[in-house]
Simulated scan of single mutants.
Amino acid sequence: MSEDSHLSLRERTRRAVQAELVDVAQRLFVEQGYEATTVDSITEAAGLSKRSFFRYFASKEDLVMGKYDLMGEQLQAGLTARPADEPVWTALRRMFDDVIAYTADTSNSARMDEMERIVSASPALNAAYLQRLDQMQSDLATIVRDREEQAGRPRAATDPSPEAIVGAAFACMAAARRTAIRFDDQSLPDLVDRAMSDLWTFDR
Score class of each variant (00 low, 15 high):
6 H>A: 11
7 L>R: 15
8 S>H: 09
8 S>D: 07
13 T>M: 06
15 R>G: 00
16 A>N: 10
18 Q>C: 11
26 Q>N: 09
31 E>F: 00
34 Y>N: 00
35 E>K: 13
36 A>G: 10
39 V>L: 10
40 D>C: 02
47 G>S: 05
53 F>E: 02
53 F>C: 01
56 Y>H: 15
58 A>F: 03
59 S>E: 10
70 L>R: 11
76 Q>C: 14
76 Q>N: 08
77 A>D: 10
81 A>V: 03
82 R>G: 01
84 A>D: 07
84 A>H: 05
85 D>M: 12
88 V>E: 01
97 D>W: 06
99 V>S: 14
104 A>Q: 14
105 D>V: 08
110 A>C: 08
110 A>E: 15
111 R>Q: 13
113 D>P: 00
117 R>Y: 02
120 S>P: 00
121 A>W: 01
121 A>S: 15
122 S>I: 03
122 S>C: 02
124 A>D: 13
131 Q>E: 13
136 M>K: 13
139 D>C: 04
140 L>T: 11
141 A>S: 12
141 A>E: 04
149 E>G: 02
153 R>V: 03
154 P>R: 09
155 R>V: 15
155 R>C: 12
157 A>F: 00
160 P>C: 04
165 I>P: 04
167 G>S: 12
168 A>V: 05
168 A>K: 01
170 F>S: 07
173 M>T: 06
173 M>A: 11
175 A>Y: 01
178 R>C: 04
179 T>F: 10
180 A>W: 02
185 D>T: 11
186 Q>G: 00
187 S>K: 02
187 S>M: 05
190 D>V: 09
193 D>N: 10
193 D>I: 00
195 A>D: 01
200 W>M: 09
202 F>Q: 10
204 R>G: 14
